[in-house]
């Protein structure tokens, strides 16, 4: 009996050595361990074994079964890993083939610039507010220290709806609306669309976008304005950016300034981009004129503040080196896809 079991074990082992597929493996399992298998046959022959030998033979049979099962399992693992290897060899991809893209849409450069500016000022504690695009003369001009017949009214080439209602020429119109509410201190920026009657060309558009900033509090100084805009310029154009404040005139600020930043292309050395000057003008600003504060019911002896206005298109054109403003309003997908 013992001899027979040994023979079965060896026979299984020999067959397994030639097994080259999972089907074959199954066949071997059935041949030896199945209902009609050789080992099962041996078990059936237990009846003929003397009762005192049965435990020993039983143990032997079980050992043989385990040995065959282990061998089957080992061979199976081996076959499976060989099959996987073969599949991996087959499944080689040409990784340089073009990607399958989900075709995301693209954000307009104006919006990218706007979100960039918003991010910077929200981080500095500014609330973003909006105001109407069709606006009363009072907010666009009068409350900004530009009374009737003021030459600045002509300079801005205003579109009028009627004598009192116009298309706002500047987001500064939001200043008076916010100040009138009287919730001090004020730290706001106000992005939005503005209109001036300029014919469309490479550098002009009858409608464009600005972001206005306004801070009103006790003890706000021109030095604070300088520091704030210096931070802004560094965030927007890079940490090495320097700013230069030049005196200028706006009716609603005093003192007033125009701000240049070092050319972000040449770093200030002078290049074609900055017309050799090393500086690029980006915005206008100043300390809120006390008369503007008074007209909005704020006491200029107690409060002071600063305001600034920056053109979004100007930032977009500069940052992305777009050479023609008309591209921003054509909406050609080949243009938009580049952002």
């Amino acid at each position: 009996m013992e001899h027979m079991l040994q023979k079965i074990r060896e026979a299984a082992k020999a067959q397994l050595e030639h097994a080259d597929s999972l089907d074959k493996l199954n066949e071997i399992r059935v041949n030896f361990l199945g209902k009609k298998g050789e080992l099962t046959a041996v078990l059936k022959g237990m009846r003929d074994v003397a009762p005192e030998d049965r435990p020993k033979v039983g143990q032997l049979v079980n050992e043989t079964r385990t040995a065959i099962e282990d061998a089957l399992e080992a061979t199976k693992k081996h076959l499976e890993s060989a099959a996987r290897e073969a599949r991996l060899k087959q499944e080689v991809l040409d990784v340089t083939r073009p990607a399958v893209k989900t075709m995301l849409g693209h954000r307009h450069p104006n919006t990218i610039a706007r979100e960039e500016v918003e991010r910077i000022f929200v981080g500095m504690g500014y609330e973003v507010v909006e105001g109407p695009e069709v606006e009363y003369d009072e907010y666009n001009f009068e409350k900004l220290n530009i009374p009737a017949n003021h030459p600045a009214k002509d300079e801005q080439d205003t579109f009028y709806i009627n004598k009192n209602i116009l298309l706002r020429t500047q987001t500064s119109s939001v200043q008076a609306r916010v100040m009138e509410k009287g919730n001090l201190p004020i730290r706001i920026i106000s992005p939005g669309r503005v209109f001036r009657s300029d014919e469309v060309d490479a550098t002009h558009s009858p409608s464009f976008h600005q972001i206005e900033g306004l801070v009103i509090d006790e003890h706000v100084t021109f030095a604070d304005l300088k520091g704030t805009l210096a931070e802004f310029a560094k965030e927007l154009f890079g940490p090495d950016t320097k700013v230069k404040f030049r005196p200028h005139h706006f009716p609603f600020t005093e003192p007033s300034a125009e701000v240049d930043v070092t050319c972000f292309k040449c770093g200030g050395k002078g290049c074609r981009f900055c017309k050799g000057e090393g500086w690029i003008e980006i915005l206008g600003c100043g300390m809120v004129h006390p008369h503007v504060l008074e007209m909005c019911g704020i006491d200029p002896e107690q409060y002071s503040g600063f305001a600034f206005g920056v053109g979004l298109e100007r930032i977009a054109l500069l940052k992305y080196e777009i050479d023609d403003m008309r591209l921003l309003y054509e909406n050609d997908i080949r243009f938009l896809k580049q952002f």
């Binding site: 973003v128 201190p185 509090d217 300088k226 520091g227 230069k244």
Partner: peptide
């Protein structure tokens, strides 16, 4: 005074008042 002292010579500081919450509507 600021013009002839020189805008460049005016210090740069940040507003010192109470903090405000920055937010979008």
């Amino acid at each position: 005074v600021a013009r002839f002292y020189g805008y460049d010579n005016i210090p740069t500081t940040l507003p010192s008042g109470a903090a405000t919450a920055g937010k979008l509507s």
